[in-house]
Design a protein around this nucleic acid. Structure first.
Lengths: 219, 219
DNA sequence: CAATTTTGTTAGATAAATCTAACATTATAA
DNA sequence: TTATAATGTTAGATTTATCTAACAAAATTG
């Protein structure tokens, strides 16, 4: 069984993996907020325990076992977030910190009950997919709002970032998943986008914000 | 902030404390399932952090700060157990292991929400009192079924032991908190007691079992 | 009350997860 | 294409929580 620390490395490795499933030591060190020597020694431990493949001076790659384990931890995290929002009345900006702790609980029945009680949700409160019990993740290819054009109508479906600050910004604009946005115009100079939705007839969203909003194109 | 290990020692210290609030090193070692030297060194750490008073070759005593901290961890444990039973549909024999992990979560709002959702319960699923937010515990002086006499009618109110095996034994006899028991007779030889309740017209309970059943006398 | 048993302590070792300082390799770029 | 920068590794130390072996104090008992 992976230690809590190992579990956190597995999660980061899963999230940092590029198209070749590779992660650099320095990226991992930044993500985990530890020094490179720490990562170096942990990576050796993770390899010894069969979670990843490591060769000196090369980026590391999760093994299938490591990838599955990571996905199952992410599953627990996302189920927890959804449970906190749907069953306990938390706001989407409050749940990450709690889920970060709950995800390490070893009690399959606990998470199965959450799952059942919610009717087996497939996405978390931020629109990210919840891996299934086998650790399989159903990737949905949303569009970034940044890549949309004036005249299009889209539905806000997910976020690429779920920091408290960003979520509080969205709350302040009354933006939530499922909101239908009409793109009124796009400013060529700074890539900002003007949208209308609900009772907001004209709201300007900066490129920084648009990059983080994932949408489904309507029609 | 106490480490998870320290929190477990505090809980044990709280539960083992005798009338003088004292706990012996050997008792603590047994309870924590570690060696005496381990306890010896941990006790020094706990003293350094202000959780208890320790003098060489003497039993240790929790400080008020230590006692409060312990009670607040026990509060989280018992709220969790009650939440698992009342809101998630677990049996009383399934919740201890899960609560043992959840109690270490640092997220006051999480436990406050549980508390609210349950309407501020004062006892856990095994009849043990839930300490309040200040760490105050309301002690109820129940009677042991062992101390009752033939002819008396009592209500099962709490348990002194909540091991899975014992809880499964009670389940097998259809015994749950709130059950009204009529004491039909008591065997002088082995202290066993014969009771009737619900559709059980005559059930014999050994001394070992009676010792663990706490009851309220009716009338 | 002296001998023995029980209880508690010290010393020193180990494993996990971290660090800094120094060094090595690989990548970038003048 | 060699100098420099970026990235990665090694060595060795630290902290936390644990252990065993050896020893010391306190409690029990014949």
């Amino acid at each position: 069984m992976a230690s809590q620390t190992e579990e956190n490395y597995l999660k980061s490795l899963f999230n940092l993996a590029n198209d070749n499933n590779e992660v650099n030591i320095s990226e991992l060190a930044t993500q985990m907020q530890v020094s490179m020597p720490t990562v170096n020694s942990m990576v050796k431990t993770l390899q010894k325990n069969g979670w990843l493949i490591y060769e000196k001076y090369k980026p590391v790659t999760l093994t299938p076992k490591g990838k599955k384990e990571a996905a199952l931890i992410i599953r627990k995290h996302r189920l927890t977030e959804m449970f906190l929002v749907n069953k306990m009345g938390f706001g989407w900006e409050e749940v990450h910190e709690i889920a970060e702790q709950v995800e390490h609980i070893h009690a399959p029945k606990f998470f199965e009950r959450m799952d059942e009680m919610m009717g087996f949700p497939t996405i978390d409160p931020h629109g990210s997919p919840i891996p299934d019990k086998q650790g399989r993740i159903q990737e949905i290819n949303y569009l970034s709002l940044s890549d949309c054009k004036a005249g299009q109508t889209v539905i806000l479906a997910a976020l690429t970032n779920s920091s408290t600050e960003f979520l509080e910004f969205l709350n302040s604009r009354n933006l939530s998943l499922g909101t239908e946005l009409k793109i009124l115009s796009k400013e060529a100079y700074d890539q900002s986008i003007v949208v209308s939705y609900l009772d907001h007839s004209s709201e300007t969203l900066s490129e920084k914000v648009c990059d983080k909003l994932l949408v489904k194109l309507l029609e």
